[in-house]
């Protein structure tokens, strides 16, 4: 028979045991997470090879003005004179009038470089991430225009609202030290 001890009742022992188990449990979770390594934080990014430029990015972001903007990698761009990211295919005349532009906010700036090449740059303050130009560039051009989450704007929600609405599952968590997925030249 164990010695009788007033301080240790059965209930007390059970409670202290459970208390210890809970503390050990939290420690276990913390230890497991740390052991899994990757001290990294995670941020959301669009895989441009999966993106179908559906337009959800412009509307589903919790920010009033979406954190997603068009990105241009000039190394891939063909500098086309007739750019289908810039011109609406149904445009009446091929001048830079707003009615002929694909971009609803006029965020693409077209600049003559040398015959027959034109440079296209994105004015991020105007871009709303609708992806209309991306669609045009993917369909008829080199695909050098694509959507990316701009991390100077993104508030990094635990569950990105656009990711939940993305039809092609192009949104994914990426390590914060490589926060962009840019298209590259050699990608087939």
């Amino acid at each position: 028979m164990p010695e009788h001890n007033d301080n240790v009742t059965r209930r007390r022992l059970l409670r202290d045991g459970l208390w210890g188990a809970c503390l050990a449990g939290i420690g276990g979770v913390a230890g497991f997470a740390v052991a899994k390594g990757r001290k990294n934080d995670w941020v959301w990014q669009i895989d441009p090879y999966k993106c179908i430029a559906c337009g959800n990015c412009a509307t589903y972001c919790v920010l009033e003005e979406s954190a997603v903007k068009c990105t241009h990698v000039h190394a891939i761009c063909g500098y086309c004179e007739i750019c289908f990211g810039f011109f609406d295919p149904e445009s009446v005349t091929l001048d830079e009038g707003a009615e002929n532009q694909m971009c609803p906010t006029g965020a693409i700036v077209r600049k003559y470089i040398e015959d027959p090449y034109y440079e296209y740059t994105i004015d991020e303050s105007l871009c709303n991430g609708c992806g209309k130009c991306v669609k045009g560039c993917n369909a008829f051009g080199n695909g050098s225009l694509f959507l990316q989450v701009r991390h100077d704007r993104c508030v990094n929600c635990n569950q990105c609202a656009i990711a939940a609405a993305c039809p092609s599952q192009a949104f994914k968590r990426v390590p914060a030290d490589h926060p962009y997925i840019l298209k590259t030249v050699d990608h087939a």
Partner: peptide, 25 residues
Amino acid sequence: AQERFPPPEFETDYVRPTTTMPQPE
């Protein structure tokens, strides 16, 4: 899929802008 129009080689001394990538704060 890509490279329908090979990126041009410019005769003028035009330099391609680099893509900005603002880092997450």
